[in-house]
């Protein structure tokens, strides 16, 4: 008759599946496409990433030698990471942390 009952009772007496997020960190799996960082030492400001980026999340200014990266536009396809000739864009298997604002990341010249 009530087919859900066993499930309910089992759940009631088992550990919850919830992960208490900020206190328990969930480690991403290896190979996870996560946070993207730019290495300005390696970057040669070729703008390839800017042109490649499907959601237009990266802006490279070769004059000012800066890179503007919007992680909230980013779709984490890793096109830029795989296509950076200088290997200046690196992806870390890490989840994008929660933020109060949609902050844009600026990269300035190293020197």
């Amino acid at each position: 008759m009530v087919r859900m009952l066993p499930n309910i009772l089992r759940n009631l007496f088992s550990k919850p599946a919830t992960v208490k997020h900020p206190f328990v960190k969930r480690e991403p799996f290896p190979g996870h496409r996560g946070t993207i960082t730019f290495d300005m030492k390696k970057c040669d400001l070729c703008q390839d990433c800017e042109r490649l980026c499907p959601p237009v999340a990266i802006k490279v200014d070769p004059e000012a030698r800066t890179i503007t990266y919007d992680p909230f536009k980013c779709i984490y396809c890793y096109l830029c990471v795989t296509n950076c000739l200088q290997r200046a864009i690196r992806g870390r298997p890490a989840y994008t942390p929660p933020a109060y604002q949609k902050e844009i990341v600026y990269y300035k010249p190293e020197e």
């Binding site: 991403p28 799996f29 190979g31 996870h32 496409r33 779709i75 396809c77």
Partner: peptide
């Protein structure tokens, strides 16, 4: 995520 690198896509 394990195989593709992302939970959803």
């Amino acid at each position: 995520e394990r195989t593709g690198g992302n939970r959803v896509i």
